[in-house]
């Protein structure tokens, strides 16, 4: 089997706000009834995270759960565990109405880290990123510039962005340009 590589192979653009591609990450899209006990149990056992409420993400390190829509959750696991994790989901939910797919190689994850990371994102997305309305743990699917993306706040200075692999280069360059242009001071 060939060696898997991430979209930008860990590219880093250092600066006051550093843009860094996260490298290989395991991601599973799981659609189904999010209130189903079996589904919640298998998600938690794979990630150690509680099922997030609407618009939230529970992430710790490489693992986590992100609320994508009323019937969809994104399961984050280390890349090497994605295939096993998918098999466990299939085993746990067999016979019920659900759909799970390993999308690890179809996506890219980019970290935005630094003091004005919030503004770097706010300049690019039509989302309300005021500190009072978007806080650590909040998750939002929207667009960055011209491409679909999702992001959530890990902590006050760190955002994690997910986009399609095919547009990872565009998203990365966009974030770098936004960071390079500096802080606007809109939220301070």
């Amino acid at each position: 089997m060939s060696d898997a590589v991430s979209a930008l192979q860990g590219k880093v653009a250092p600066g006051e706000v550093t843009i860094r591609e996260a490298g290989l990450r395991g991601m599973i899209i799981l659609r189904g009834d999010l209130s189903d006990k079996k589904l919640r149990k298998v998600c938690t056992s794979l990630t150690g995270a509680k099922m997030p409420d609407q618009g939230k993400a529970h992430c710790e390190g490489d693992k986590g759960l992100c609320w994508m829509s009323p019937d969809e959750v994104l399961v984050l696991v280390p890349y090497s565990q994605a295939v096993d994790a998918l098999a466990k989901i299939d085993a746990a939910l067999g016979g019920t109405h659900y759909l799970a797919e390993n999308v690890s190689d179809a996506r890219a994850v980019i970290f935005v880290e630094g003091t004005f990371a919030r503004e770097v994102i706010a300049k690019l997305a039509p989302a309300d990123l005021h500190p009072d309305s978007f806080k650590p743990g909040d998750f939002r699917r929207t667009r960055l510039g011209q491409v679909a993306a999702a992001f959530w706040m890990r902590d006050a200075d760190t955002f994690e962005v997910i986009c399609f692999r095919s547009v990872a280069g565009y998203a990365f360059d966009l974030l770098v340009a936004s960071a390079k242009a500096g802080a606007v001071g809109h939220f301070s």
Partner: peptide
Amino acid sequence: PCCGVDADETDL
């Protein structure tokens, strides 16, 4: 009303 966010028309 499905995901509870205020989306602007470019999101829709």
